[in-house]
Design a protein around this nucleic acid. Structure first.
Lengths: 208, 208
DNA sequence: TCATTTCTTTGTTGATCGACAAAGAAATAT
DNA sequence: ATATTTCTTTGTCGATCAACAAAGAAATGA
């Protein structure tokens, strides 16, 4: 297993993490190979030898991002005693991340390839799929809540999961616009206050 | 006032509208001059002569977008009898726009320059300012509602305005990901159901 | 020691980016 | 009719894009 030839002069995980931060900050299209090689501290040929291409590097970076934060939110959903606690907790985990001064503001999955990838539908769908997974995990947690009794039977789990996913994605933009941790908390508090109207009452909320 | 020299061979408003749609679809950085000249049907030299630069053209396109939709939402806020009706109505006006099959999905102001403009802070701030204006108009409508009695005195208007702005921005991403008009309506219904918990009760919503 | 393997450095590739210069075309003013 | 003005067409500019080829450097195995 030990390589035969000259060993790699950089740490792959470290380089990937630095690439992730760069993509997170500047987006996929907004990040040039020069940006990457500068941040990673290696030459472009090493990037291609180690990661294949800019797009493959980006996909790995997104998976690393998901492994770091997504897992924490998923664990919050799983270990929570109620669906409300789980979903609101997941929002808070993300708010922590979005407002962390050590990393770029907002969510990499939500923001790094929304537009500008019109002629790369695979990459767009890749990220859209990651976003859909979050929404699906919300829905599954709501369904579990129905089974466990803390969510009223008859709740429109698709609508409620979509609502909280929408709030989460909106928080990513708010964070990009400079929203502090406290402001994100205030948004979450509002979303939490809506809970009983959505997942407690058996009737669909009236629109007007 | 009648021009002396050769008259322009294209309609400025039409060309601007086509540029707006292109920026809306592909984002600022994702739109090339070739994309623009193709969509507008004119050569790049004509673009520069008529609009100055790509960035100035984009700013004009954003202002046109705001004049088309922002005004409708603002009128909804002004003419509504209650703050609730105004803000929920503004969300619906935007949902109409986001899901209109005749135009690109989602919101141009929210999506067209979120990342990829790291080295152009003026442009980023320009769009962030437009987003802040929406949030401010929500806040002002809430304050008016307090004065008119349909919003409980003591309501945290900053938090509530931020919440509904967050939902609106999240809807833009949902729309980009393929959300139908009906799904956006479901999100709005959830946001509307939260209203009484936020703007009716005098107490701040409890977080847990 | 030396051949082999792998990585790094350096340089370059064709394509595309936004922007503009120069010249030709079409209108008005005198 | 002719000069003037303005627009359009054509071509091109230097910069930058993602990607890779070739050669030098540094490790291992025999």
């Amino acid at each position: 297993m030990a390589g035969r030839g000259r060993p790699r002069g950089f740490d792959r995980d470290t380089a990937l993490r630095q690439a992730m931060v760069t993509f997170w900050e500047r987006g996929y299209e907004g990040t040039s190979m020069t940006d990457l090689t500068t941040a990673m501290g290696i030459a472009s040929a090493s990037v291609y030898a180690c990661f294949g291409s800019k797009e493959e590097l980006f996909r790995e970076a997104v998976e690393l991002y998901g492994a770091m934060e997504g897992d924490k939110a998923l664990r919050c959903l799983e270990t929570s005693l109620t669906a409300r606690e789980g979903i609101i907790g997941a929002l808070q985990v993300n708010a922590d991340r979005f407002a962390d001064p050590a990393t770029p503001p907002g969510c990499m999955v939500a923001l790094s390839a929304l537009t500008g990838t019109t002629d790369n539908p695979e990459l767009r769908d890749f990220l859209a799929g990651r976003r859909a997974l979050v929404q699906q995990s919300f829905r599954e947690r709501l369904e579990r809540g129905i089974g466990e009794g803390d969510v009223q039977d008859g709740t429109d789990v698709d609508a409620v999961a979509g609502f909280y996913a929408t709030v989460l994605q909106g928080m990513a933009i708010q964070s990009r616009d400079g929203a502090t941790r406290a402001r994100l908390e205030a948004v979450i508090a509002c979303a939490a206050a809506a809970w009983d109207s959505l997942a407690r009452g058996p009737e669909r909320p009236a629109l007007r």
